[in-house]
């Protein structure tokens, strides 16, 4: 089977590997790099548990071939956690019990962060629409919507009131 040499920036670190043409990004991250935070659940691009960022945009790790990523920058839940980028969102998920088994949670957080990056004040309906491609089997979604909404409101109020004592 043909292999391709790729150089990818993963969570800020340069990684060089020879990968088979058929290897999906999610299997590359989990199997080759040991980044187990992104999960495999449906393998058909339906459920969103494998959501990661490629060059800043969220993608399904089970639909992207690793061989196509030479020169790309990939970020996973481990990377954004280490950078503290979504600490407030993660804290809101903990406080609201917006994660139960936690299997969908990393993908859900990547998707929620994507929404808040493009829409600082989403309505509940917009939040529900945006996370529609990320399945959660445990929570029934309401706690997740609450946590995202709370985070958005806090970000807006801290932006507006950042200078106040």
């Amino acid at each position: 089977m043909t292999t391709h040499s790729i150089t990818v920036t993963v969570n800020g670190e340069s990684v060089r590997r020879a990968v088979q043409a058929r290897l999906h990004l999610i299997d590359f991250l989990r199997g080759d790099l040991g980044l187990m935070g992104s999960h495999v659940a449906c393998e058909h691009g339906v459920c969103g548990a494998c959501t990661v960022r490629v060059d800043g945009a969220i993608v399904r790790g089970c639909l992207v071939l690793a061989a196509s990523l030479d020169g790309a920058s990939v970020e996973t839940i481990e990377g954004v956690s280490d950078r503290g980028e979504i600490r407030d969102l993660q804290d809101a998920f903990i406080a609201r019990n917006a994660a139960q088994c936690g299997f969908c949670t990393p993908g859900m957080l990547m998707c929620a962060a994507d929404l808040l990056g493009s829409n600082a004040q989403p309505t509940r309906a917009e939040i529900r629409e945006h996370i529609s491609g990320n399945y959660c089997r445990c929570t029934g979604y309401q706690a997740i919507v609450d946590a995202i909404e709370t985070t958005a409101l806090k970000r807006v109020s801290s932006d507006a009131g950042g200078a106040k004592p």
């Binding site: 187990m36 999960h39 903990i94 994660a99 936690g102 990393p106």
Partner: peptide
Amino acid sequence: PRPNLPKLVEGRGQYVD
């Protein structure tokens, strides 16, 4: 709040796979 959530929201749980 639950003690096992901080690891799960950072993708640092340990499922069988």
